[in-house]
């Protein structure tokens, strides 16, 4: 079985998007379960789209146990349409016949939650979002998963592979990279592609980015001033006044 995990670099420290870390862990865990129970080998590849520095999250993925890393190098402005990202990822996902493509439910920076399901649509694959549990695939290429709904509900689905799953937090605890694997990872080659080589014509952005703003306030937001004891005292007085304590 071949699994591809799409990961993204986020934040000022350039860490792996935490939902993608859960996706990678789930892929590696499926590999462990598969190889133990069915003694069939599984490969876990990772792909990222991002600037040159994003190579470090692929190295980290090697340290966790990923086999091959693809890096589509793209220096992007502040906004990239999820459609553009999904189109780029699809170019890597078509390189090998993957049975499963995993990614996080969303990125913590752009929070669209659209890249996974769009990638599925571009590739003509079925997709389940917010996956909170996976079972081992059966012989007839079906994988049973649970997706998280609201208020404690879950849908149990059987999905025919190849398929795309977007992974929700809470499904697992991502492992730390192992030093031995990190050292070995130094030898591993990251397969790097220039965005412009794959797509000589730029992919059309579907949305225009205007800017950022602070979210609207929904409550008065009175800030208690003073020292720590002052603040504690003010809160205590306020709660007493409202007869809450």
């Amino acid at each position: 079985m071949k699994i591809l995990v799409c990961i993204k670099q986020v934040g000022s420290e350039g860490e792996v998007n935490r939902f993608d870390a859960h996706a990678l862990e789930e892929a590696l865990d499926l590999k462990d379960r598969f190889e133990t129970q069915l003694s069939e080998s599984v490969t876990v590849d990772v792909v990222t789209v991002g600037p040159v520095e994003a190579a470090r999250i692929i190295k980290r993925a090697f340290g966790m146990g990923a086999d091959t890393g693809y890096h589509i190098v793209a220096e992007d402005p502040e906004y990239v349409s999820p459609f553009v990202t999904a189109t780029r990822l699809a170019s890597a996902a078509k390189k090998r016949p993957y049975d499963l493509i995993l990614t996080g439910i969303m990125s913590t920076d752009m929070m669209t939650g659209q890249t996974g399901p769009m990638l599925a649509k571009i590739m003509g694959l079925p997709c389940a979002t917010a996956v909170i549990k996976t079972n081992l695939p059966t012989n007839d290429n079906l994988i049973e998963v649970e997706r998280e709904l609201e208020n404690g509900f879950r849908d149990c689905l059987k999905i025919r592979m190849p398929a795309v799953l977007t992974i929700q937090a809470g499904i697992n605890t991502p492992r730390y990279p192992r030093l031995s694997k990190m050292l070995a990872a130094g030898q591993k080659e990251i397969k790097t592609f220039k965005e412009t080589d794959i797509f000589p014509e730029p992919i059309e952005e579907r949305e225009i980015y205007i800017g950022l703003a602070l979210p609207e306030k929904t409550r008065s937001g009175r800030v208690l001033e003073g020292s720590l004891p002052d603040k504690a005292e003010q809160l205590l007085a306020l709660l007493k006044e409202k007869d809450l304590i």
Binding site: Y79, T108, E204, E205, R206, E207, Y209, L212, A213
Partner: peptide
């Protein structure tokens, strides 16, 4: 950005 900002978009 973890709900700290709103992003404004319009269709292209």
């Amino acid at each position: 950005f973890n709900n700290t900002r709103n992003q404004m978009l319009r269709p292209a």
